[in-house]
Design a protein around this nucleic acid. Structure first.
Lengths: 197, 197
DNA sequence: GCGCTTGGCTAATGTCATTAGCTTTAGGGC
DNA sequence: GCCCTAAAGCTAATGACATTAGCCAAGCGC
C-alpha cells in the first residue's frame, strides 16, 4: 500500500478546509481520516489527537487572519486603514467560517505559542488605532470596543443571527462609520502602518 | 426503587444549572443523568435526546434573558433604559455563561416556537430604541450594531478574550457611552417601555 | 543491497447517544 | 381499599468516536 504522504501541515490544512465546508463542530478525526483516505489512528502520527487538531487549525486560522489584517492596513492610515481592517476581518470570517469559529476558544495561558499568535490580530488593530488621537488611558477600552463590535457583528452574521440577509453590507458600513465617528482622527497622524506593527 | 420525580422542566432546569457550572459544551446526557441520579436512557422520557435537551436549555435561557431585559427597561426610557438593558444583558451572561452560550446556536427556521422566543430579546431592544430619534431606514442597522456591540463584548468577556481582567467594567461603561453618543435621543420621546413592548 | 526510521494499519478499550423492550410505580376509577 | 393502566425508570444492545498498543512495510541514508 502506497503512503498517503501526510504531514502535520497537510492534515491541518485539510482540517481547516473541512471545517469551512461543514463547520468546526463537525470536524472529527474520523471524518477527516475518511476525507484523507486514511484510517483514523493514522492521524495520530501527525497531530496530537482531536484537541491537538483543533488547536492546530485555530493557530493556522489566527495567523491567516492576522496576515490579512496586516496586509489590508499596509500603506494606509487613519480612517482608511480602519475601514480596510474592518472589511478584511469580516471578509475572512465569511470566506472561512469554520476557521473563524476555531479561533473563538481562547488558548490556555500556559500555551505560550498560541498566546503569541492569538495576540497578533489585536496588535494589528492596536497599530491602526495609533493613527487616531486616543488618550492613552482610553486605548485599551477603545480596542475592546472595536473588537466587540467587529467580532459581535461577524459572529451574529456567520451564525445567521440577522433575520433579513439582504442589506447586511449596509449594516456593516453603518457600524464602521459609527465606530469611526467615535474616534477623533489625528489631522494626519503617524504615517501608514508598516510591516512591523 | 422509588421514582426520581423528574419532569421536562426539572431536567431542563438542572441541565441549565449544569451548563452554567461546567460549560454548555460539557452538557451531556450521561453527565446530566449522573447528576440527577438516574440512568442515561431515562432522560429520554422527558427530553428529546441531546439535541432536544440543548434546545430546551436555549429556550429557557432566551426566555429568561428577555424577561431580564424587559424588567430592566420597565419604567425607564431613552438613555436610562438603554443603559439598564446593556447592564442587565451583560449581567445575565456573566451570571449564566452556560445558558448564554446555549442561545448562540440560532434555531432552525422551521422551529417556530424557538423563532418566537429568540425574537423576544430583540423586541425589547427595538422597543427601547424607539425612544430615540432614529430614522426608520436606519433602525434595522442600528439594532444590528447594538446587538453586535453587546454580544461581541459579552462573548469576548465570558470566553476570557480580554487580557486584563481588572477594568472590564470601565470598558463596558465606555462601550455603552459610545453607543449612546451615536444615537440622537428624542428630547422626551415616547414614554417608558411598558410590558407590551 | 541493508537497516532503521516512521507512516500507516488492525485490534482493543472506553465513552457517549440512542433504541428496544421489560418492570414497577402510583394515581384514578370502582 | 383494590385493581388497572399510563408512564417512569431500568437493563441490554448497537453504533459512532477517540484513543492506545503493537504490528508491518515503505523508503531514505549509507
Amino acid at each position: 500500500m502506497p503512503r498517503a504522504g501526510l504531514t502535520p501541515s497537510v492534515v491541518t490544512a485539510d482540517a481547516a478546509a473541512f471545517a469551512d465546508e461543514h463547520g468546526f463542530e463537525a470536524l472529527t478525526l474520523a471524518a477527516l481520516a475518511k476525507r484523507l483516505g486514511v484510517a483514523t489512528p493514522s492521524l495520530y502520527k501527525h497531530v496530537d489527537g482531536l484537541d491537538g487538531l483543533r488547536r492546530a487549525v485555530s493557530l493556522l486560522a489566527v495567523a491567516e487572519l492576522a496576515e490579512r489584517l496586516q496586509a489590508s492596513a499596509v500603506g494606509r492610515s487613519g480612517p482608511e486603514a480602519l475601514r480596510a481592517v474592518f472589511a478584511s476581518y469580516r471578509r475572512y470570517a465569511l470566506e472561512h467560517p469554520g476557521r473563524y469559529s476555531s479561533i473563538q476558544r481562547s488558548p490556555s495561558p500556559s500555551d505560550t505559542e498560541a498566546q503569541r499568535l492569538f495576540a497578533r490580530p489585536v496588535e494589528v488593530i492596536t497599530a491602526v488605532l495609533r493613527g487616531f488621537a486616543i488618550p492613552d488611558e482610553r486605548m485599551v477600552h477603545t480596542i475592546r470596543a472595536l473588537r466587540s463590535a467587529l467580532h459581535g457583528f461577524v459572529d451574529l452574521e456567520t451564525r445567521g443571527g440577522f433575520g433579513l440577509p439582504e442589506d447586511v453590507d449596509a449594516s456593516f458600513a453603518l457600524l464602521t462609520d459609527g465606530f469611526l465617528r467615535q474616534l477623533e482622527p489625528v489631522p494626519d497622524g503617524g504615517g501608514p502602518i508598516g510591516t512591523g506593527a
